[in-house]
Each structure stands twice: as C-alpha cells, then as structure tokens.
Computed example of a mutant assay.
Amino acid sequence: MKSILFEQTGKPTDILNVTDVAIPEPGPNEVRIRVVASPINPSDIMFVQNLYGIRPQLPSGAGFEGMGVVDAVGEGVQMRTGVRVSFTGVGTWAEYAIAHQRSLIPVPDAMTDEVAAQLFVNPFTAYAMVKDSGVPEGGWLMLTASGSAFGKMVIQLCAMRGIKTIGTVRRNDLNDELKALGLTEVINTETDDLTARVKQITGGAGVSCVLDAVGGHTASQALTCLGKGGTMLVYGLLSGQDPAVNIGLMIFRELTIKGFWLTDWMRRVDSATRQDVAQNVISLLSSGTIQLPVEATYSLDQITEAVAHADRPGRWGKILIKP
C-alpha cells in the first residue's frame, strides 16, 4: 500500500515521500481502516517539523485525523467491518491506517466523507475552547487568524450562542464571508490599530476572552484588548514567534494566559463531557448547521503540492488527502 512517510524532520515539502509498505494488521483493541479522506491540519505540519507536543518516532507516518471504512478488526473489538468511521492516530495519510477502537466515531449516513474527515480536530477544539472561554451570551470574544477553518467554526458556534465576536485578518478578501458566517466585527491588523479598534467596538470594556493561534506581535497586541479579568487561550503559534507579555498589564487587569491542547483536554474532562461534545458536534455537522468547506483535494502522489497548498495564505477551505 501507499503511505506518506518521513525519515527526518523538517520542511514538509522537502521530506515527505510516498512509500510502498505492507498493509498493517490490527492488534488487540485495534482496527484497520481503508482511508477515504484525511485533512491537512496545522498540527500535522508541526509534527513533521518536530514542533508538536507528540514527537515523531522516525521513520514516521504523517497525518493525525481521517475517515474511512473499517476493513479488519483485532482481538477484543466489537465493531463490525464495513462501518464508516472518523478516527485519529499517527499515519492517516495512507491507503490503510491502524487506529485504537477508542478513537473511532461512527459516521452518520447524512454526513459526507469530506465533513467526516474533519470531524475531530477543528470541531472538537472549537467547541471545547468556546465552552472553556466562559464568555456569556452578549459578551465579546476575539479570535486571531479568524479566516482559518478553525476560526470559521468558532464564529459559527459563537453566533449560535449569542456571543459577539471580533476576528483579526491580514487581508480583506474573506471579510464578507466571515461576516456572513456570523462574525460581528473584523479588524485588519495590517491597516488598523487593533487595541484602539477593540476599545471603540466594546465601548472601552475590552473583550472577555481571546483565542490566539498566531503568537508574536499579534498575540502581544491581542493581550491589550482583554478587559478586566480576561483570559487568553493559546492554541497555536503560526508566526513561529513568542509574544512579548506586558506583566504590568497582567497584574493590574488580572489577566490570565492559558495554553490549550485538545489531547490534554480530552484526557482531563469526564466521559459525560466528552460524549456531550461529540453528540453536539456530530449533530451540528450532520444537519449542515455548521459548515466545513473544502478548497481542494489531492492524492497521496501529490503530497508535495498538497502541503504547499495547505501553507498558502488566503485559503477559504481545508485541503484534503484522498488516497
């Protein structure tokens, strides 16, 4: 079978290769999945560069998330073959992948393959972070890089909950689409004074929470937009630069900065919370209430073009790998 492997860490376009390997066999509590589609997420790119919380064991497969059909089951697995599932694991950019049965989410018939392939990472993270933000109905939440697939998910969730949102962008080509999804206000950080605009929008009160994926100067500026007792939840570092933190601001406004990693969040919360998130996410996606657009699909043989496209600025949808 074909699988995307890398033998050293580095720039994805330089090190990812299509390799012929034996079809894997599932062990106890594992299933083998014939992969139909898998997205390219920022976490995948960070993993390949050895910048993620999980370190690759070289040589390593790539891709953390996907959907497909259960093809074989190991000892102790109750699920039958032929079932469509969303799943997580290391090495989803392949024709076949192995996953632990605990990571499987059966896919409803009403959900398309393209949506099911994106079921876990972005939707679960967005749902969990909006929940953890504590912003009430009528309150203000700000998110950086709001034009990303994750940002669009947050915008839609907040609109459903009556939470007002401010999104930052670096270009204006997605502004109309973001406003149509429910974004209350959009700020271009290249042309506008972020702090002054947020102060104007919120009547001087600032926002209750910032969800930041950028870091660097953008995160430093976003911190100044928090109101008294506000919180910044950090879930990425797209700029590759650490922000400068104003300690005086943190002290006198009683601000909090917290990291967010879905893997740890899923371990930390109880099973009832995990089930609640899963049911709500599946319902929202199956009904079409929340949209997860796809910009382009590529085959495994086109992996270099696919990761280059995923890194391209100004994308409006997710890039998928379809073996």
Rank of each mutant, 00 (worst) to 15 (best):
Q275K: 15
N50T: 00
A244V: 15
R253W: 10
G162T: 06
F64Q: 03
N122L: 09
V294T: 14
L223D: 13
T184M: 06
R170H: 15
A306W: 03
S283M: 10
T144M: 12
I257Q: 06
V90N: 14
A222R: 06
P26E: 02
E295P: 06
P293S: 06
L238F: 04
A22Q: 11
L143N: 12
V18Q: 01
G203Y: 04
L16M: 08
V18W: 02
A22L: 10
E114D: 13
K179F: 02
G139K: 00
P123W: 01
D264P: 00
L238N: 02
L300N: 04
D264L: 13
P59G: 08
G230K: 04
I303E: 03
I251N: 13
K2S: 02
A278S: 14
V277P: 14
R312A: 12
S287V: 00
T289S: 13
L194V: 10
L285R: 12
L255E: 08
G215D: 09
V169S: 09
T273I: 14
N188S: 09
G139I: 01
I163A: 10
I40Q: 09
G151D: 07
I45E: 03
L320R: 06
A99T: 09
T92G: 11
Q279E: 15
G240I: 01
L238H: 05
D311C: 14
Y52A: 03
T195V: 15
Y127M: 14
Q275D: 15
Q118Y: 02
L5Q: 14
D270H: 14
L262I: 04
I105E: 07
D192A: 13
D212N: 12
S287G: 07
G66I: 04
N29K: 11
A159H: 13
N188L: 08
S299L: 11
Q241C: 04
A97R: 01
V281D: 04
S220C: 11
L16N: 03
L211H: 12
G61V: 06
I303A: 05
E190D: 14
L174I: 13
I33Y: 05
S3V: 10
G317Q: 09
S287W: 00
E305G: 10
E65Q: 09
W93K: 04
I15L: 10
L119C: 02
G182S: 08
W140K: 07
N17H: 12
S271L: 14
Q49K: 12
P106Q: 00
A97E: 02
L143K: 07
P323D: 09
G138A: 10
V198W: 12
M67T: 12
L237M: 14
T9Y: 03
L292R: 05
I247W: 10
T19R: 15
V70L: 08
S38I: 01
K131W: 12
G66D: 07
M111Q: 00
G182T: 05
T19H: 10
M232H: 11
A244W: 05
N50I: 00
L262C: 01
V90M: 13
G216V: 08
A244P: 00
I166Q: 11
Q156L: 00
T263F: 05
K322D: 04
E137Y: 01
D132T: 09
S239N: 08
A116N: 05
L119E: 02
A37R: 00
L292T: 15
P24V: 03
G288P: 01
D20K: 05
R197Y: 00
